[in-house]
């Protein structure tokens, strides 16, 4: 464990908590893409199957359970409890166009052709594009509530911090995982436009408005 990965995991945890608080407190999931939340649930499910047969540390196990529970809990809140507030007309990104390529690529480019390894690789590829429906929704509505932009900032920061973790591990532990690194860079790049708007607008108290 290193400081970059710890901060990354905490940023990820904070993002998930911010989202649950936003939906629970405002009793609304307006501005949130249910499609992205479905993709995150698929990512965590396919990545954390090793919970069954591999114990790494209490921290690792607890965080995996929290991420799984929070992602399914968010889907429950969005598609059941607060279904009336779900923006079905704007949340129209075709996620099959993200899932299929990730699955095909995982079958072609992986470290080992074994079920758990393919699923892990699939989850890495899918996670790198899982935020697209959410960014698409924000661009369609043209704006986002400030708490939603804080959620996105934390979520985007988590994988950006992981990049520093990979740099650290390359020099300190002399090991690297190209699949995770390339996907992590793609994932972080997708947030760049949002990061720019967040830092230049939201941090100055303005609302996050995307140029229409």
């Amino acid at each position: 464990m290193n400081i970059f990965r710890l901060l990354g995991d905490l940023s990820h945890l904070l993002a998930i908590i911010i989202l649950l608080v936003k939906i629970w407190k405002t009793r609304s999931c307006a501005g949130i893409s249910g499609k992205s939340q479905i993709l995150f649930a698929v990512v965590y499910t396919s990545r954390y199957l090793d919970l069954i047969n591999a114990f790494i540390s209490p921290y690792n196990t607890i965080m995996k359970i929290v991420f799984l529970a929070a992602s399914y809990g968010t889907i429950y809140l969005m598609y059941m409890k607060f279904k009336a507030t779900y923006d079905v007309n704007h949340d129209t990104f075709r996620i099959e166009f993200l899932i299929a390529p990730a699955a095909v690529l995982a079958l072609i480019v992986n470290h080992a052709f074994e079920p758990l390894e393919i699923l892990w690789t699939f989850s890495i590829y899918l996670e790198s594009v899982a935020i697209l429906p959410q960014l698409f929704l924000v661009s369609k509505t043209g704006e986002a509530e400030s708490i939603t932009s804080h959620y996105l900032f934390m979520l985007g920061s988590y994988r950006a911090l992981y990049i520093f973790n990979w740099i650290y591990r390359y020099y300190a532990e002399n090991h690297y995982d190209l699949i995770a690194i390339v996907a992590g860079i793609v994932q972080t790049v997708l947030y760049c436009d949002f990061f720019y708007l967040y830092i230049t607008k939201v941090l100055k108290g303005k609302k996050l408005q995307l140029p229409a």
Binding site: I56, S57, M63, F67, A112, R169, E173, H175, D177, A180
Partner: peptide
Amino acid sequence: GTREKSKDEL
């Protein structure tokens, strides 16, 4: 391989 080590990442 490299994969073993990054298994401890979330």
